[in-house]
Design a protein around this nucleic acid. Structure first.
Lengths: 291, 291
DNA sequence: CGAAACTGTGTACAGCATACACTATTCATT
DNA sequence: AATGAATAGTGTATGCTGTACACAGTTTCG
C-alpha cells in the first residue's frame, strides 16, 4: 500500500517495446498465455538450463549479471535498473544480456531472489517462539530497509525463488515450539509476514529517501506536512485533535509517525506493534494448549 | 513487499524521458531538489491553483482527467496508464494533459488519492472499537482489491492526499472508545494499517490476475507450484513437512496460502490474522484501563 | 483595439525494452 | 585435421514512452 516514489517501469503484462507478432491490440492477455508466463518465470528461477556443449563459452555467468543488476539497484534505485545500465556494468552491450535472460522480467525475478538473501542463521539454541519470531521480524525488516528497491516491485504472488522460500522456512522454524497445527502455522506465518511487510513501508520509504541523498529531517518534514494539513480541516477532527493534543502540537519538523508528547521513533513504533501482534498470537497458542 | 506482476514505469526520481537542462549525469538528485519535489507534489494534491481570468476556458477539469486515468488503470492495469492512453480517453492529444498536470507523477498522485475514495460511512451507532476496526479493515481490503493497481505503486510516504487522510481519520474514529493516549492511538493505527496492507497483498495479486483474465484456479496453481518446490528440497524441511502433512499433501491446484487438511480460503486467513491482531490490541487496552 | 494570458496541437527527441541479422568462436562429428 | 552446427556477443532498427518546445486559436483585461 501506499505512498511512492521513483520507480522504473517493470514487468508489463504485455511486452513493453518491440513488436509482437500476434498482439491483438486490446486483448487483456489470454489466461493461457499469462499462466504460461508464470510457469516459465518460475522455471527460469529454479532450473538452470543445461550448459550447451557446442558454441563458444559465455564470458559471464547468470550470477554475475544478477550481481551487476543488484549493485545498480542498490546504488541508484530501481528506476536506474535498465538493461543498458546492467550491460555497461558487466562490460557488455545491452543485447548480450538477452543471452543470459530472455527478458528484463526474468533478470529482475532472479535479482530479487538473490538480493533477498537468506535469513541470518540462529546462533544459539532455540530461545522460544516469541523471541525467535521477533528476531525474524527484525531481520526481515532490516533486509528490506537495506534494499528498499525490493519493496518497489508490485506483488504478483509468483514466482517465488529459493531465497524467498528460505525466509518462510526460517519463520516456521521460529514457530517450531508452538505446537500449532499445520494450518494454524501457515496462518501465523501469514500474520507475521503481513505485519512486518506492512509496518516496514514507512521505514523503507525513509531508507529510499536517504539513499537519494535526502536527510532524515527533510524527509520527516515532507511526511509531516501532509499529516498536518488535517489540522485545519474540519473533515479530520480526531486526527486534528491528536496532532494538536500535546506540547504545542506538531512542529513542521516532527518525525513520522507524528506524535505529540514523548515522540517515539519509527523503530519503537514497529516494536510496539510487533508486541501487540505477538501478544495476540500468544493468546491463541495458550488457549490452544489446553485443547 | 512481495511478488509482482505487470507494472508500468512510474515516478522516476529524475525525470524519465525528455531532456533536463541541469541534469548532472550521475548526481543522485540533490537533497534540496528532492525535498522541493515532495513539497510541490503535496501542494498540487491539496491546493487548487486559481483559475486564471485571461485566456480560453479549459475543456476539461482536473477531475475529468483523473477519472479518465482511473478508468484506464481499472480496465487495463497500471502498465496501461500512459499519458497517451489517458489523453485518448478524454479526446485530447497527449500534450494537452500537461496543461492540467505538470507531469505524469502529479496525475498519478491525484488519481491514487481519488481512486482510494473515502471509507464507507458508519450506518448505525458506534458498535465498540473491535467491531469498528474490523469493519474498517474489511473496507480497506475491499478497496485495495477493487483497484489492485493502487498497490502496485511503491510507497514513498508522501504526498498524502485528502482521501488518504480520511481513511486514517476513520480508523481513529473506530478506535474512539479505547481510551488510549494520542501516542498509543497513532501506534495502534499503524499496527492495524500495517496488517491490513501486508495481509492484502496476496488477495490483491489475485485480483490483478483476475482482471487480466486469469482464472482463480490457474492463479492458485501458479502460486502453489513455487511453494511445492520446497517439498523436494532438504533445505526446507518444515515447509516441506507442512505441505505434505495431511490429506495427501498439496495438489497442484491447491489454493494459496496452501494448506493441508481443511483448506481455508484467503478471506478466512485474513480474518484469522485480524483476530490475532485485535486480540493483541485488546490485551493492551485492557491492561491500560486499570492504570 | 490590441496585448497578454491562456488552451490545445504538432513535432521532435532521448531513453526504454527488445527483435533481427551479423560475425566470431568452439565443440562434435567426420 | 577438416567441417558444420550451435553458441556468444555486436550492431542496428523499431515502437513506445514521457515530455520539451514552438505554434495557432481563444478569451479577457487595459
Amino acid at each position: 500500500m501506499t505512498g511512492r516514489t521513483g520507480l522504473g517501469d517493470m514487468r508489463s503484462p504485455a511486452t513493453k517495446g518491440g513488436r509482437r507478432r500476434e498482439d491483438h491490440p486490446q486483448a487483456p492477455a489470454s489466461p493461457e498465455s499469462t499462466a504460461l508466463d508464470l510457469q516459465k518465470r518460475s522455471e527460469l528461477l529454479w532450473e538452470a538450463p543445461p550448459r550447451p556443449s557446442r558454441g563458444s563459452k559465455p564470458t559471464m555467468s547468470r550470477e554475475d549479471i544478477v550481481q551487476a543488476a543488484i549493485s545498480v539497484a542498490d546504488q541508484s534505485g530501481l528506476a536506474a535498473l535498465t538493461m543498458a545500465a546492467v550491460a555497461e556494468r558487466v562490460g557488455f552491450t545491452t543485447m548480450a544480456l538477452y543471452r543470459y535472460f530472455p527478458n528484463k522480467e526474468a533478470l529482475i525475478d532472479a535479482s530479487v531472489d538473490a538480493a533477498m538473501g537468506t535469513p541470518p542463521p540462529r546462533s544459539g539454541p532455540h530461545k522460544g517462539w516469541r523471541q525467535e519470531v521477533q528476531g525474524w521480524a527484525y531481520a526481515k525488516r532490516a533486509m528490506l530497509c537495506a534494499r528498499p528497491w525490493l519493496a518497489e516491485l508490485p506483488f504478483v504472488a509468483a514466482p517465488h525463488g529459493p531465497n524467498w522460500l528460505s525466509w518462510h522456512e526460517a519463520l516456521l522454524e521460529a514457530l517450531a515450539d508452538t505446537g500449532l497445527s499445520p494450518e494454524d502455522l501457515m496462518d501465523m506465518l501469514s500474520v507475521v509476514h503481513a505485519y512486518v511487510s506492512g509496518a516496514s513501508d514507512t521505514a523503507i520509504s525513509l531508507a529510499r529517501a536517504r539513499s537519494r541523498g535526502m536527510s532524515d529531517e527533510l524527509w520527516a518534514q515532507a511526511v509531516g506536512r501532509d499529516l498536518c494539513r488535517a489540522i485545519h480541516h474540519s473533515r479530520y477532527p480526531r486526527l486534528s485533535a491528536i496532532l494538536t493534543s500535546q506540547s504545542g502540537g506538531i512542529s513542521d519538523a516532527s518525525p513520522l509517525p507524528v506524535r505529540a508528547g514523548r515522540p517515539r521513533t519509527m523503530e519503537e513504533g514497529f516494536a510496539f506493534g510487533l508486541e501487540r501482534v505477538l501478544d495476540g498470537i500468544a493468546l491463541y497458542i495458550d488457549s490452544n494448549e489446553g485443547a
